[in-house]
Design a protein around this nucleic acid. Structure first.
Lengths: 338, 338
DNA sequence: AGCGCAAAGTAAACCGGTTCAGTAAATCGG
DNA sequence: CCGATTTACTGAACCGGTTTACTTTGCGCT
């Protein structure tokens, strides 16, 4: 493989000249420029990215850390970050943590190691002191989708509270007073906010007679199944509507509901959250709160690269992206007989 | 940031010693080793990956090029490659080509640039001479899922022919004789193989009276919609079964079938391909040929890193992974009235 | 006492770029 | 025709590791 030196020799100039010419920091008369171009052509020269990066002190790479890549929400998110990174001529280094803390912590070192210039970080467990300490000292980093307590980095979330509110209001307007909220382990701020918004939405419509139950758990298909089983095992006084706060929870819920012959929305109304999976094709099509996932990815990279913190602000920058309710066929008024 | 030199100074040894100690190419007496460990601890030293890579002449990174990251098939594939890469302590550099040839070609340079040690490449258009030339000279590379003609690199596909066969046989056994095959643009080998296998499966069961139509197109939701519209616009003598050869095609098909009130499988039977999306929740649950996507990703990286070509073999190595038919509710015998 | 060998390191070249601080020659103004 | 400026370039240091080939010291053995 030819290197800068080889090109310089063939073009009868110095390394410096070729380097500066290629980087545009030197104007050359046409003859010299041509000689260099010819030499590059002839030797089939391609600059070595590793050398360039070492010299420049940056990797031209940003790292993306997500719990899992294969779920629609995260894969769509990754896709939108990649698109924006590509637009800026940055490479994307992708890492799945599978929610394992030691991975999260070790990947955070990638910035210090010079493997990445910055990091976009999504985690599903948000309370760890070691983790937040590490995030605060790792280097350029933004936290997305789920908060990590005690971190002083820019943050970007969907408006979880508004999402909960929309779902709650919609179900209350449809006459539901006894509801089941599924999702969110205690430490996850997204779950808390969705829950709070949900209650607010319900109360705005129906201030009395409300009964809201909750099954907490991770945003997984299996947790959805489990919640559904628990729901079904109760023979009487069941809630008339369920708010499943992620696509995965909803999928698990639908699976079990379907298997056991429960009919949506006749026997129970359902509202989902995320709306990245093809919920419009499910039976019945699912009414859900839609997250602006693509917007989230694009904005995350913008925040990472362009954001300059206010000197006077002591609080970390936090940004909320709006959500919308997509009405489909999984919500109906409850049957009055109980 | 502390570097090797700083550590060496503090531990009263030379750079060489520290480097060799850290890389295990030097056994040191406990006192010296401790001194180095202490210095590293004290200075909070982390080796610089860029420098290491330049020196080593490899990037410890492999590049993954797919048409799109957000579809379930590719995102699952990416996830499985990432898992295997992580197991081997390699970084993964992710690139979406959006099927644009100039991107595919420019990303292939990443190997020569030293940005990646090898490349896993999936494309959806397979006939280009510039592209195959570039692939042949780019460096370590494997071609996955869809063939690129005239390339001499290891190749890994699902058994598309067997997949077509399973679908054809299943539909024929259910009594279908007039069928519609949807998918595959001309240059795509996967489509051809699925089609060929489809015919073989049909003929094995029913040698006469077979009528097989075909609508070609890319593996997209929109192409699925379009095929469905075309299908529906024919008022009589419609095929009684449709083989939609990707999840996306199937989704588009189901959307339009649903909107226009066609009932599956009463009015038309449907078999899908991929089975990565939650087809079991669709209405009705979709019978489909399942691709072993995770296996595909894992094996792709193995091939890239471990495969040593036979010196005597002139043909490129080609590997086929088995597929299975998942029977659900979208296939029934045709109604006999036409 | 002296040879041989193992133990414990090390100096310096190298990977392939970028960049600071110049230099030599050509051109220009007066 | 001389000094000043501009043009066209360059030597060498630097980024931070890895590695080859080599030195020094100390010990056991005869």
């Amino acid at each position: 493989m030819a290197n800068l030196q080889d090109v310089a020799r063939l073009a009868n100039v110095s390394k410096t000249t070729v380097s500066r010419y290629l980087n545009g920091s030197l104007d050359l008369p046409k003859r010299t420029a041509d000689a260099i171009d010819t030499a590059i052509e002839e030797l089939n020269y391609v600059p070595n990215a590793q050398a360039r990066r070492l010299s420049l002190g940056r990797s031209e790479t940003i790292a993306l850390m997500v719990p899992d890549i294969s779920t629609p929400f995260f894969s769509t998110f990754v896709a939108s970050v990649e698109a924006e990174a590509d637009r800026r001529n940055l490479s994307l280094s992708l890492h799945a943590t599978l929610n394992r803390r030691e991975r999260e912590i070790s990947y955070l070192d990638h910035i210090r190691q010079g493997r990445a210039d910055g990091l976009i970080f999504i985690t599903n467990h948000a309370g760890d002191a070691t983790l937040s300490e590490k995030i605060n000292t790792a280097g350029p980093c933004v936290v997305v989708d789920e908060d990590v307590a005690a971190t002083h980095v820019p943050k970007l979330f969907c408006d979880n509270d508004a999402g909960g509110y929309l779902a709650g209001r919609h179900l209350a307007l449809n006459g539901h007073r006894h509801l089941l909220f599924v999702g969110g382990v205690d430490e996850m701020i997204s779950g808390e906010r969705r829950h709070k918004g949900f209650l607010r939405g319900l109360r705005e419509v129906a201030d009395t007679d409300l009964r809201v139950e909750r099954i907490s758990g991770p945003y997984t298909v299996e947790a959805g199944r489990e919640a559904a089983r628990k729901f079904i095992s109760r023979s009487d006084d069941r809630p008339t509507a369920i708010f499943a706060t992620s696509d995965e929870l909803l999928i698990g819920l639908y699976e079990v509901l379907g298997e056991t012959g429960m009919s949506v929305p006749r026997d129970v109304s359902v509202v989902g959250f995320d709306d990245v999976s093809p919920l419009h094709l499910f039976a019945p099509a699912v009414t859900a709160v839609r997250q602006p996932v693509r917007e989230l990815g694009k904005r995350a990279l913008e925040l990472l690269l362009d954001f300059k913190p206010d000197a006077d602000s002591t609080l970390p920058h936090e940004e909320l992206l709006p959500v919308t309710l997509i009405e489909r066929d999984s919500v109906a008024p409850p049957i009055r007989n109980a």
